Simulated scan of single mutants.
Amino acid sequence: MADDPDVPDFEVPVGLFQDLEDLKVTVASLKAQFKALREGADGGAGEAFADDDADAGEEPEEDAAQDDDEAQYPPFILLLDSPEYDDELRALIEWVEGVLVPGYLAEPSSDARWCHLWFDHSVAVARLHALWLAWQELTDPVSCGYTGPSTWHRDHLDPCLAQLRSSTGPFAGCTKGEHQIGHRMPGIVPSAWSQPED
């Protein structure tokens, strides 16, 4: 081991290795983001990037072949049509009922509402689907390191639940035992400008 140039002669703290692993994950994530931005660039910019790749000794055709092999992420649920929507909703229901409800939702109250038929509220479906997509990404240590779950709680879970469970959220008309999808819209507010003349 003393002859190995990669092994330092001094004692390295364990935390340093964890920091290095986090940095590696961050660099890999940034590379993936750059690659996605590069592929989404206009034709002129894309040609310049392709020239840069060729200069660097990389084959652009190989990159395209690798992209086909990469996993495709699901699009936003409200943009899906049946049967894709139904499949995505079924998976979302499993996650909400299996992870979110037992782990994070306390008993509903007037200050923290919840509807057991949440999947009938399109706003709730949209927000919970976005929360679920973030959970899938941020609980994978390969893509986000060890801080992903903390980021998910702070940036995604807390704001989402605050919006869903607020008194003006999508469950505002739902009380214990009752469920309303089409909540009453406010009527026309009388205006001083439209008062009938005497």
Rank of each mutant, 00 (worst) to 15 (best):
A28G: 11
E47P: 01
R184M: 05
W132L: 05
V189G: 00
A36S: 03
H153Y: 05
P75N: 14
I77P: 00
G98W: 00
K24W: 04
E107P: 03
L37M: 09
F10Q: 13
P190I: 13
S143T: 15
T26P: 03
D53C: 08
F76M: 12
D22K: 09
Q66H: 08
P8R: 02
L23Y: 09
S110D: 15
K35H: 04
Q136K: 13
D53P: 10
T147R: 07
G103W: 01
G46L: 12
F17R: 05
I188R: 06
G15E: 04
Y73F: 06
E137S: 08
A54I: 14
D53K: 09
S150R: 04
C174W: 02
E58T: 07
A56H: 13
L105E: 13
A2D: 06
H121G: 10
V189N: 00
D6I: 15
E197A: 04
E11P: 05
Y104S: 15
L30G: 12
H156P: 06
E61P: 05
T147F: 05
W193C: 08
K31A: 07
A126E: 03
K24C: 12
W114K: 01
P102H: 09
W193N: 08
P141C: 09
C160Q: 03
T151N: 03
P75A: 11
D69C: 02
P102L: 13
P159H: 00
K24P: 08
L105I: 02
G187E: 01
W152T: 14
D155P: 10
R165T: 01
A71D: 02
V27H: 12
R165K: 07
C174G: 02
G173M: 07
E137G: 05
A54R: 13
I188Q: 01
D81I: 02
D4P: 01
P196S: 00
E21Q: 12
D42R: 03
A50T: 14
R38N: 07
E21N: 09
L20T: 00
E84P: 01
A134L: 01
E94H: 10
S143I: 11
C160S: 07
L157S: 05
A192F: 10
P74C: 06
C174E: 02
V101D: 10
S150P: 07
T147L: 09
W152E: 02
